[in-house]
Computed example of a mutant assay.
Amino acid sequence: MTETLLVTGASGQLGRGVIHHLLDTLKVSPARIIATTRNPANLADLAARGIAIRRADFDDTASLVEAFTGADRVLIISTDELALQGKRLKQHQTAVAAAKTAGVSHLLYTSMPNPEPGSPVLFAGDHYGTEQAIKASGIPYTIFRNGWYQENLFMSLPHAIASGQWYTSAADGRIAHGARDDMAAAIAAGLASGATESTTYTLTGPQAHTVAEIAALVTDVTGKPIEVIQLSDEALTEGLKAAGVPEGFAPIIVSFDTNTRSGRINMVTDTIETLSGKKPQPLKQFLEANKAVLAG
């Protein structure tokens, strides 16, 4: 198989993880891989391994068309543009149109679980709109609906461990957090598979937990008790802002808890193992591996 595989956002954590698995796990020839980023200098280490590095700016259509030209399978990793509402969706739509113009044969995209209208997550519409643009393009596709990363817990756990209190509005909702690297391995396998049919996968960790169950696991690992305090969405938003979370970002964080409480992220799938051949890392293993970072 000689298809050329392109990864956008290759300087980010997920992008680098995907390329690592292409090279080192799947043994894909570097000559078949194209890595793109806004600043190619950030990928000098990948260039040294023989990977083609191209500039791709999601705000510059011409750069995307040029970057995608000659690539058979293109993985669009969703951008991190959240500050300006609507900008990320526009970036993604521009990338899909560029892939069409460049003659890409298969388009892959990193979305989120249940992004359909009605999702409480404030940026879900970016993902749903991108999925719709991909389907409308007529290009065969693979959509990876990535569940929440175990690494996302770095946003809340260090403070909860230090203070002994974890404020949440998630109630008894469950999340099967998955390791970012496990998702990268599954995505790399899908990118390198050569599969031509259009498919949507949901990637999760191996077990779904409530906030109280996660707190119990953390206490078991660190020896530090955590009291889970349930708040309303409004009270949690105000508390986050009082703690220094930027006013525009606090509602986004709270929308995750609303989403959890509503049961829209409680699914558990075996897709990571099916695609990568590797069992995903349990949450307790992640906590043990990061005990020093979490507990300060």
Rank of each mutant, 00 (worst) to 15 (best):
A186N: 02
L275N: 06
A212Q: 14
E213W: 08
G277K: 02
Y201P: 13
E197Q: 10
A208W: 07
I252Q: 03
A212W: 10
H209C: 12
K241M: 02
Q230D: 10
G248E: 03
G248D: 07
G223K: 02
A235F: 03
G248F: 04
E238C: 02
E273D: 15
G244H: 05
A192P: 01
K241Y: 03
S255C: 14
I272Y: 06
G239Q: 04
G194N: 06
F256S: 02
V268M: 08
T271M: 14
T237K: 05
M267C: 13
V268E: 10
A186D: 10
G194Q: 04
I187V: 09
G263A: 09
I187G: 04
S262Q: 13
I253M: 06
I272S: 11
T199P: 12
K241A: 03
V218E: 11
I226L: 11
A250V: 00
E227V: 05
F256D: 06
A212E: 15
Y201D: 14
S232W: 03
E227Q: 11
G194A: 06
A242D: 07
G248T: 05
N259G: 15
V254S: 00
T269W: 02
D233G: 01
L240H: 00
I229D: 00
Q207H: 10
V268F: 07
I272P: 08
N266D: 15
T271P: 14
T200L: 15
A216T: 11
T210F: 10
E234P: 01
S232C: 06
T274Y: 15
F256M: 09
V268N: 03
V211A: 10
N259I: 11
T269V: 10
Q207F: 13
I252Y: 01
P251I: 00
A185N: 08
G263T: 09
D270P: 13
K241C: 02
T202Q: 07
P246V: 00
A188V: 08
L236S: 01
T204R: 01
G263Q: 09
V221C: 08
A188Q: 09
A243I: 07
G223H: 03
F249P: 07
G190T: 08
T222A: 12
D270W: 11
T237Y: 04
N266A: 15
T219W: 14
D220N: 10
L240Q: 00
T210R: 07
P206K: 06
E234W: 01
Q230E: 15
L203R: 00
R261E: 13
I252N: 00
S276D: 09
S198V: 12
G239D: 04
P246C: 02
T271F: 14
E227T: 02
T219C: 14
T274A: 15
